[in-house]
Design a protein around this nucleic acid. Sequence first.
DNA 1: GTTATGTCGTACACGGGTGTACGAGTTAAT
DNA 2: ATTAACTCGTACACCCGTGTACGACATAAC
Lengths: 192, 192
Amino acid sequence: MDRAPARPRRRADAERSIERIVSAARERLSRDPDATVDDIAKAAGVGRMTVYGHFRTRPELVEAALAGALRAGEETLGGVDLGGDARDALTRLLASSWALVAESAALLTAAQDVLAPGRIRDLHGDAADRVENLVRRGQRQGVFRTDLPVAWLVSSMQYILHGAAEEIRAGRLANADATRIVTATVLSILRR
Amino acid sequence: MDRAPARPRRRADAERSIERIVSAARERLSRDPDATVDDIAKAAGVGRMTVYGHFRTRPELVEAALAGALRAGEETLGGVDLGGDARDALTRLLASSWALVAESAALLTAAQDVLAPGRIRDLHGDAADRVENLVRRGQRQGVFRTDLPVAWLVSSMQYILHGAAEEIRAGRLANADATRIVTATVLSILRR
DNA sequence: GTTATGTCGTACACGGGTGTACGAGTTAAT
DNA sequence: ATTAACTCGTACACCCGTGTACGACATAAC
């Protein structure tokens, strides 16, 4: 966030390092929320001191990783057509992005340990809003249930996604089946 | 496990201490998987050294807490009538035990950090089997879906329960509504 | 080619949790 | 009432991750 326009002066190799570090942080923190700064540095093929050269503290690094994942998510979500039948829209949304959302969710729990609650809402807010709006539209169309709180419906989707990612990680679910299974499960929850 | 018949000799106050410690461990670890031995000791109204007097290491304490929770779970689950229509049976099962299962799930993730995988399966195995059998019976009765793997159906139930507990903890879900919401959600997932 | 910037190893101070050692005081068992 | 079991504070050694300091070397920028 402040890394783009903060100091206009930055060398090309520094740019490259930062990108590799943030990318490694996303990858590692998604698998282990307690991943060490040293772990991340190693995964990025970089010395620990280099990391501290760009991120003063570990929380700052975690925040950058979360921001990066959310920005990537925004791009993907932005390209999905959310019009038409809400069920179809949701199916399209899940097909193109469920894995990414699930990964971000894991990273998000990692962030919850070290970042202030308000900070997270700021970064994550509108991503969640988008889904919530889609659910509401489905309700207005009469295809989604209205007997449960919207907040719960959205949350339960999150938990299903998170769970599916976990099952894959543990080898109990094949990656090929995942999209179909996740979609079917989520639609079942929302169905009127 | 080895605490009952290990040394037949144990004083009444020691018995009391152990019970309070295990109980406190269940309570605290369900809220924070990284709870300190000292945290647990304080919650039990006992000195840290007393804890180490009964449990040599922290993992050993975690295991005792998990075992205690599962034993309590077995008692509750054992008292539920699982006959008749599988949907009704599942509703009864959830009504009487969802909170407990959800709590144990949180404790279970705490245990996953410190215990060997095999150790957990040993303790948790038949509790999961019971639910799985109920799901299979529902499929045979034609009231539960068969287009998704049974293992996934059971897992997704777990994740929903876990999520509901989380929502309550965060204050986003009222305890009074929880049973109804959880039941409705789970039945929606299983419905044919 | 000079200079500022970035890389990164070693070393260290610090904090926090774990597990051990000692020992004095307390309480149940008989 | 004597004994063995239990409680529990203080103190300490240990490990591990964080963040800082110093400094040598490499490399991009001009």
